[in-house]
Amino acid sequence: MLTHVNPSSGVPLYLQIESQFKYAIASGGLKLGDALPSVRKLAAELRINPNTVARAYQDLEREGIIRTVPGGGTYVADSTPGLLKSEKLRRLRPSTLQLAVEGIQLRLEPEEIITLLKEELSKLVGE
């Protein structure tokens, strides 16, 4: 679950929250149908502005990762149906590009970058 954000990081807090939820879902810490804490509860827990949490939830909902039932809370949604494979790949392209750029800047070989990515994948989803 979400336990920590770093307000002094250069990364905006709403992005930190979004990526932590994505990580929790990808690694199985949060499963389909699991309830998320309310905006105000999570804000109080993390000691951050509720508007910031609300913005993160809105983004995640727009991406289909969570869904909000009016008056009934927020849940982890099944984000895969309806999305074409090409759309999924399109979404992933920017972060892949960033990985590639940083790898090249560090003078790593393509194989080394791919090995690294495979290691992280197997940590998340297992072999």
Binding site: P7, S8, L13, V39, R40, A43, A44, R47, I48, N49, P50, N51, T52, A54
Partner: peptide, 27 residues
Amino acid sequence: LIEDYIGGNCTILTSSHQLNELEQIAD
């Protein structure tokens, strides 16, 4: 402040030298 005041209709204007604390609550 977070539980009872921020995120509703109340507006807060605050000066502070504690920048790391402002980063937590400021829009």
